[in-house]
């Protein structure tokens, strides 16, 4: 009998599991960043596969900016309960006290910087994690295409793109100097389509916001912003209207643009994706400046 050949999803899955196990074996105190989105859902699923029938040998960490969609938080708590996850939640209390938010300061950049980038560094330092899994993919953005699967950060959490370690075969070098941390990206070689195909194949639960539904939105700077709670101040003349929308990517609700859609199930989402003409990051307000902005943010420690 000829050996079964592995499909591309089988190969990607095996590679990701290998990476996750390698970190668990070689790092002193790893953590998995859980951002509640579809990529995190896939990453969590792969981690559960890696250690089955055992439990995950590391906790999950959610860096909560306090501006996530309510549905995201509800989903997160449900997953933690149902899967008996060891979930840590960190909020930048100092940032909260300073009243930093995506609206009050008018600058999304400052909010992202303080409540996300700063907060992540705080959390890693607070618990002393030496390695953090993230769900980023190389197909998301150009500078990510050059990032290694094991990506080192200085004690100040900076990324030095010109000084990356060679990464050979499946041999990952997880050794680091005191104070350094590693970001590990097990989904590096996955594309957006792979992620959806895998969610479909494995029947992985995802946040309902990915599916189209009638939701209250306002239109701002060409983006559809959902009025998720009463904190979103309405400009004069703005009234929320109910529209059939969904999200291709999830983050802080005032910074995340929705798309009009009728896709209420997975197959419809994939169909929309295959006929789409814009990339998923377009919904993220953070990327809209120069094309080198992501690289700059990463050097500063944005995940």
């Amino acid at each position: 009998m000829p050996a079964p050949t592995l499909s591309h999803l089988d190969q990607l899955e095996a590679e990701s599991i290998h990476i996750i196990r390698e970190v668990a074996a070689e790092c002193a105190k790893p953590v998995m960043l859980y951002s509640i989105g579809k990529d995190s859902a896939v990453m969590l699923h792969l981690a559960r596969k890696a250690f089955h029938p055992g439990r995950l040998p590391f906790p999950l960490l959610h860096v909560d900016t306090t501006w996530k969609f309510r549905d995201m938080i509800a989903f997160r708590d449900r997953m933690a309960r149902e899967l008996k996850l060891d979930l840590l939640i960190h909020v930048n209390e100092d940032g909260l006290k300073r009243g930093i938010g995506p609206i009050s300061h008018g600058f999304s950049a400052l909010h992202t910087d303080v409540m996300k980038t700063e907060a992540l560094k705080q959390a890693l330092d607070k618990w002393g994690f030496d390695a953090a899994f993230g769900g980023a993919r190389r197909d998301e953005e150009k500078s990510r295409a050059k990032e290694r699967i094991f990506s080192f950060r200085s004690a100040k959490h900076r990324w030095d793109p010109k000084n990356q370690r060679p990464e050979l075969w499946r041999l990952y070098n997880a050794r680091k100097n005191p104070g350094e941390t590693i970001r590990v990206f097990p989904l590096s070689n996955w594309t957006e389509l792979d992620v959806w195909q895998y969610i479909h194949r494995e029947d992985i639960p995802i946040v309902p916001l990915y599916f189209a539904a009638m939701r209250p939105v306002v239109r701002r700077d060409g983006q559809l912003i959902m009025v998720d709670d009463e904190r979103l101040p309405l400009n004069p003349g703005e009234t929320p209207e109910m529209r059939m929308i969904r999200f291709r990517t999830l983050g802080c609700y005032p910074l995340t643009g929705a798309v009009e859609s009728t896709a209420t199930d997975l197959l419809a989402i994939v169909e929309e994706m295959l006929t789409a003409t814009s990339s998923e990051r377009q919904g993220r307000v953070i990327d809209h400046d120069q094309s080198a902005s992501m690289e700059k943010k990463k050097q500063e420690g944005y995940f």
Binding site: A145, K162, E295
Partner: peptide, 24 residues
């Protein structure tokens, strides 16, 4: 320009690292 990722590379017009991309 689609594939030359890092800012430093783009300015110098050369490719200095390995870039991985997927297509189907």
């Amino acid at each position: 320009l689609l594939v030359d990722g890092l800012a430093a590379e783009r300015e110098q017009g050369i490719t200095i690292d390995v870039a991985y991309r997927a297509f189907t």
